[in-house]
Structures are given as structure tokens and as C-alpha cells.
Design a protein around this nucleic acid. Structure first.
Lengths: 148, 148
DNA sequence: TTGCTCCTCACGTCACGTGAGGTGGC
DNA sequence: TTGCTCCTCACGTCACGTGAGGTGGC
């Protein structure tokens, strides 16, 4: 899963690839969800890489599929940064207890997201069942009508 | 599936049962999603039945699970009313072609919703797979650390 | 009568949409 | 040079949230 960090993308290209508008991208940057490229002088074009596309897709999925608010996304991003900082220490030389703590935090987050996914899946499954029952009933009526 | 149309509910009770706020209920009424009880004098309390609770739950599910906008819900409600009007004719004595047309419209709507559900299910399934892979990896790391 | 829930404005907020007017890179 | 895409305000919109101030039913 190596990501191309060479190709420079413009905001319009990124927006099209992810399926959102440029306004959304600027808004997310404003909220601190997109680590605005530091060395950008005011008025200059924003420059992105494939890594930004991946990140944006992930944010959009958390928003749409799990229904997270942007505030929750910001929280999550902050927690991720904290974990990234810890991950840098990983190869440094933390104690085993420290490493366990890092892993357990990561596991808790994954479990939490899995539960949200599971809850949504149950709602959708129930909905699908209902719709299929409805469809069966309608189809039966239709057959009866045609054979009459 | 007979629905209690006896018990009179107040807006606060309805809100609690459905899991939304009273503001949302009033807003939906304003948009025409909730057939405001006609004979209500200005300032008088709104009165609901179990049927309204069922309807609201359905609207909320279409909003949350399928991501429909309120505009789309209004459209859908209008289409439903049109179908309800036709259903009243059903027992009247429409031609067989007319009946077929009614059934086909209903089937088209159900199919359309099933496709939306299916699309959402696929996204969630892919997400769940990713999270489970992540979890497995984290757990393996954790075991290795503990047995060291 | 006393709370409690309801009522109607009406402004605030979240997550962007949509121009206006101007500048920069192939 | 000419389009095209980008830039920054800044106001608009959708779907409600949140009081303010007042009235009605157990």
C-alpha cells in the first residue's frame, strides 16, 4: 500500500476524484482536518498528493457511512495524531507497558468503529427485509392480475 | 399490523418515542411531511396517534439509513399520496391496465430503495472488513508483546 | 393553584452552496 | 495573450438547536 507522494494535484482534481466540492475541501482545511500545507503564501494555489485523496475519502466515509459530525472527525483526527506521535516513539524504545497501552488504545478505537458499523448494518438489513417482503407481495398481486 | 388510533399522544411523547426533538416534528409538519391535523386552532396543542409515530420512524430511517434529504422525503410523500389516491380507486373498479400501472409504479419505488440500501450495505461491508483486518493485526502484535 | 408541557416567534449554528471580484499558471 | 482554474471574502441555505415570553391542560 505505497502511496504516490510525487504527483502534485490541484484542488479541483482532488475534489473530482473524491466526489466532493472544492468548498468542502477548503472548509475541512479550515477545521484542521487536512493539515494545511504549511509553506503556502496567501493567495497561492493549494497543492495536494495522493495521500490527501486517500485521507479525504476516509473522512467522507466516516461522515457518510457512520454519520459522524465534523466535530467528531476533528476529535478522531486529534486522537490519531496523538497515536502517530506515540508510534514514532515505538521504534524509539518505550517500555513494554507503554507499548501495550498504545495497542490497547488503538484496539479500543477500532472496536468502537466496528460497533457503529454493526449497528448501521442491522438497521439496513431490517430495512432490506421489509422491502423484499413488500416486493414479493406486489409481485404476487401482479402475477394474479396477469393470469386472470 | 393494526395500529392503535385511539390513544392521543402529545408532541413530547412522540419525540421521545421516535428519538428526535419536538423542533424536528414541527419542522417536518411545516414542510408538509406530517399532514398537520387540520382542525387545530392556532396555539392549541398538537395531538398525535401511534400511526404518526410509525410514520415518523419511517421518515427518520429514510433520512438516516438512506441519506435522503427532506426535499426527497417530500417528493416521496407526494408520490405516496398519489399512490394512496389510486389505491382508493383500486376497490372502486379500475381497468386491469390501470391496476397494472399502479403495481408497476409501486414496484419501481421499492426496487429503487432496495438499490440504495444495497449500495450502502456494500460500503459498510467493505468498511467492516478493513476494520477487522486492522483489529487482527493489532491483536497479533499484542500477543507477541505479551509472550515476549 | 402550582408545575409541567405545550405554544409561537425568531435568532443561532452546522456544513457547506453560490456568487463577486480578482490573480496565477499551462 | 487567452482561457481556465485557482484565490479570498461573504452572504445564502438546509435542517434543525436554543432560548424568550406566553398560554393551556392534569
Amino acid at each position: 500500500m505505497t502511496v504516490d507522494t510525487e504527483t502534485r494535484l490541484r484542488i479541483g482534481e482532488v475534489a473530482e476524484r473524491v466526489g466532493i466540492t472544492t468548498r468542502t475541501i477548503r472548509y475541512y482545511e479550515e477545521l484542521g482536518l487536512l493539515g494545511a500545507h504549511a509553506g503556502r503564501t496567501k493567495g497561492a494555489h493549494r497543492v495536494y498528493t495522493e495521500a490527501d485523496v486517500v485521507r479525504l475519502r476516509e473522512l467522507i466515509r466516516l461522515r457518510d457511512a457512520l454519520g459522524l459530525t465534523l466535530d467528531e472527525l476533528v476529535e478522531l483526527a486529534e486522537a490519531e495524531e496523538a497515536r502517530a506521535a506515540l508510534r514514532d516513539q515505538w521504534h524509539g524504545d518505550p517500555s513494554d507497558e507503554e507499548r501495550l497501552r498504545i495497542l490497547d488504545q488503538a484496539l479500543a478505537l477500532v472496536d468502537q468503529q466496528l460497533e457503529l458499523v454493526s449497528a448501521r448494518q442491522q438497521v439496513l438489513a431490517a430495512f432490506a427485509d421489509e422491502l423484499k417482503t413488500k416486493r414479493t407481495r406486489l409481485r404476487r398481486l401482479r402475477r394474479e392480475l396477469e393470469s386472470a
